[in-house]
């Protein structure tokens, strides 16, 4: 990954530990949610078993009930497939150091992977893709990391029941991801730690990272990169 040996031949621990912290946080969150999906499917299968046991003991089989349980299983498997797809895309983000990346897709994937962190704080996380395709040549893994830590900083500083929006914004020959909040926020001490991580990582990404002072709500964090904007694709 990004852990290049320094001139003493030692691996620089800071970027590596940041990369691992990011990987760990995402995979722990997604596998926790996948575990929930499996637990629900297991109980739904058990409910079907209960119905069949009842039928074997002479009770009439409630076909409507069986159909409804089957539909609930399908909903959960769809949820599981989405989670796995997002996790797989995330895992492949380290395949190449730099590549042409669709910013809408990258931000959308990060939104899916981060939503649970906002949910746990009763914060509503929203995503707004740009109405055109935006291609940036970058390290998708690094860009996701910078976005993730600034998003964690905003989540940790936002009160419950508020809304955080993640918007992909095109502008001339560059494009940005803008994080805004429904209320002015005060950076928490935890946020300062997350923002420090984002800044360290951004020095490797070389994007323009804008972090507003406390009491801002619109565009509290923005990250801008040179971009190719392809209009009228939708």
């Amino acid at each position: 990954m990004n852990s290049e040996p320094d001139n003493t031949g030692q691996i620089n621990p800071e970027p590596l530990s940041l990369d691992l912290a990011f990987f760990g946080k995402i995979t722990a969150s997604v596998t926790h949610e996948l575990n929930n999906v499996i637990s629900i499917v297991e109980q739904l299968a058990g409910l079907l078993e209960d119905q069949l046991c009842g039928a074997e003991s002479g009770a009439p089989l409630d076909t409507e009930k069986v159909k409804s349980v089957q539909e609930r299983i399908v909903l959960q498997t769809d949820r599981g497939v989405d989670l796995l797809r997002n996790l797989n895309k995330f895992a492949h983000s380290v395949d190449e150091e730099r590549r042409d990346t669709d910013l809408n897709e990258l931000a959308g994937n990060l939104y899916q992977l981060s939503k649970r962190f906002a949910d746990l704080k009763n914060i509503n996380l929203e995503m707004e893709a740009a109405g055109e395709s935006i291609i940036v040549r970058t390290s998708p893994f690094l860009l996701q990391q910078v976005l993730f830590w600034v998003l964690m900083a905003v989540i940790s500083s936002t009160p419950s029941d508020e809304v955080i929006s993640l918007a992909v914004v095109p502008a001339d020959e560059k494009a940005g991801v803008k994080i805004s909040c429904s209320t002015p926020i005060q950076w928490s001490s935890e946020a300062e730690r997350f923002l420090k991580r984002a800044k360290v990582l951004n020095s490797r990404l070389e994007a323009e990272l804008i972090i507003k002072e406390s009491n801002s709500s619109i565009g509290v964090c923005e990250i801008w990169l040179p971009a190719t904007i392809i209009k009228d694709v939708f």
Binding site: S39, I40, Q43, L44, G46, D50
Partner: peptide, 15 residues
């Protein structure tokens, strides 16, 4: 907080 989980598990327990 997984409402589907509590829904199905409570149903099975009530049975």
């Amino acid at each position: 907080d997984e409402e589907e989980f509590t829904s199905v598990l409570s149903e099975r327990m009530q049975t």
